[in-house]
Amino acid sequence: MNLTLQMWRQRNLSDEGGMVQYEISDVSPEMSFLEMLDILNESLIARGQEPVAFDDDCREGICGMCSLVINGIPHGPDSGTTVCQLHMRRFQDGDTIYIEPWRSRAFPVLRDLIVDRNAFDRIIQAGGYISVNTGGTPDANAIPVAKSEADLSMDAASCIGCGACVAACPNASAMLFVGAKVSQFRHLPQGHTERARRATRMVEQMDAEGFGNCTNHYECMAVCPKEIDVRVIAELNQEFLRTELTGSE
């Protein structure tokens, strides 16, 4: 099939950038979306032009590197998948496809479709960790954890930190991400040592990075490739309010 691509091109952080149109032909429906971009880049290189820069790594939906907004929706039209898992059979001959980077003040565009997501790492550094003693390997299952709690923790821990929640949110809020990171520790005994200050510190960092805040539109949950539920945002609110209002530490 033949497609028209409207892609964001931007040389570097300080370049203003803009949309550039490309025509691409003989795209096979079996190709993945990123393979289609590889083909485009090969043809750009053959013509002596700069290839389009985009992030990717595993191409199997687990690393969280790929990050494209396709026709206005982060990770494209399929729900519960990353863009590396999207295939060209979802498009039709003659389609025009808009491809843009994540848009957020906290995620500056470094080049073309690549954004700087270090803001997420700084939020994790602020409180998304647990303290453990080094030494001999502890016995497995030495600390009992209820199945229901383990499930809640593991569901939250499936977050791959791709940032699609920020890209989808009308306020560029990171609260699904931060909520997932708070929730995964909240339901496990190992997370309790830092529990009282975790949410406060992560929220402080989140605000300082310039992310917006939740107005409960739930777009984040709709685009999340791991389908993280917005209950983690309620848990984040709860954890934050508990510490702030009771002053407990």
């Binding site: 409207q6 808009y98 003040r105 009308p170 306020n171 917006g212 777009e219 709709a222």
Partner: peptide, 19 residues
Amino acid sequence: LNRRARPIAYVLDDSVQVT
């Protein structure tokens, strides 16, 4: 704060489920 959090808008913006 929320307006400031996205200084550059999407050229093509879509949403999945907002009311």
